[in-house]
Simulated assay, not measured.
Amino acid sequence: MLTVDLHVHSNRSDGSFSPTQLVDYACEKGLAAFALTDHDTIDGLEEAIRYAQELREEQNQAACAPAEASQDRGLQAAKRRAPEVIPGIEFSTEYMGQDVHVVGLYIDYRNQDFTGQLKAFVDSRTARNRKMCALLQKNGIPVSYEELTAEYPDAVITRAHYAKFLFSRGYVKTMSEAFDRYIGDDCPCYIPREKVTPVQAVELILAAGGIPILAHPVLYHMSDAQLDALTASLKEAGLVGLEAIYSTYNDADERRMRALAAKYGLAVSGGSDFHGTNKPGLDLAVGYGKLFVPYSVLEGLRKAAQEAASAP
């Protein structure tokens, strides 16, 4: 049965695999499709989509070549059957004082209004990171913003990058210590990000022609009433799907999320939230070993998006 993974990160945000490496790994895993959903950035999409297209062209050429000349190439192509790369994003938003993530699938990542909004987010992040570096310096950690970006040149800098940097330089003994002493919430070097609301994220995704999905709702540890209220408000704004299949869910979690999706007429989505080595033990396509997202989930999301677009 064909499988998909609709929640994947590259090193353009806080994953460890490059977009090209993700395509290769998806081939190895036999995925029919995966969504590259980096945090608040689309920087890896062009590379991943272009590389997957190149692999498909190689496969087509191998299939069309004379049998005696293409045997080896055909075998190689079969092993590297290119998945569909779904252009996506994961917005970090704030709702009632806590983080809530909204995934967008099939976004038009060349849409100028959309890219303009993302640039504003990047500019805000840059200002925040410079301030955090200044606070670290005041607390005896001589790290500059220039050093940080030189270490991670293609990434959207997150607190995970700070922790890795401090650990690699010997300023802390573990990455957890970096959060506990310096950059965790309410710590002396932490500055909160400027965030959009979940409703604004849904609206941005819709404006870019995408499919908005509420990511991993169980992780927010909301009461049933709070999660119900959030889902209702997002449905009214145009939410299409809800992540009911996820790496850390148990059977009861999945049943509860499927019931919530059904209550509000939302399609079910699912993904691993793969980050490479930055989330040890969590693998592409299978999560912690039991994740399974059939291709029918992607078909259901597409159908739901079409119906929503055609509704009066």
Rank of each mutant, 00 (worst) to 15 (best):
G140V: 15
N139Y: 14
H101Y: 13
V100K: 00
V122P: 01
E147A: 14
A134E: 14
F165T: 14
A134Q: 14
C133F: 08
E147Y: 03
P142K: 10
P142M: 06
S168E: 12
I107T: 02
Y109L: 02
K131Q: 15
V102N: 03
A127S: 13
F167A: 07
Q112R: 13
N111Q: 13
N111E: 09
K164L: 14
K138M: 14
H161I: 11
L148R: 04
L166S: 10
I141G: 12
R125M: 04
Y109C: 02
R125N: 14
G104L: 05
H161Y: 02
A160T: 15
I157P: 00
D113R: 14
P142T: 07
E151K: 11
G104K: 07
L136D: 10
G104C: 03
F167P: 00
N111S: 11
T115C: 10
H161R: 08
Q137I: 05
E147S: 10
T93V: 05
R130E: 12
Y145L: 00
L148F: 05
T158L: 00
R159C: 08
Y162F: 15
E146V: 09
M96T: 04
P153Y: 01
R159A: 04
A134K: 12
A155H: 04
K119D: 13
R130S: 05
V143A: 15
A150Q: 13
Y109R: 01
A134F: 03
V143P: 06
A150H: 07
S144Q: 10
R169G: 07
T149W: 06
R125L: 04
P153K: 04
C133Q: 10
C133H: 09
L136I: 13
I157E: 06
Q117R: 10
V122Y: 10
Q112A: 11
N129R: 11
Q117N: 02
E146W: 11
K119T: 13
F167M: 08
H161V: 06
M96F: 00
E151G: 00
Y106C: 04
V103K: 02
I141N: 09
R128N: 05
C133G: 11
R130L: 12
D108T: 05
K119G: 00
V103R: 05
N139P: 07
M96S: 08
D108I: 00
Y106H: 11
P142W: 07
T149C: 14
F165P: 00
R159T: 09
A163R: 14
Y162W: 06
G170T: 07
S168H: 10
M132L: 11
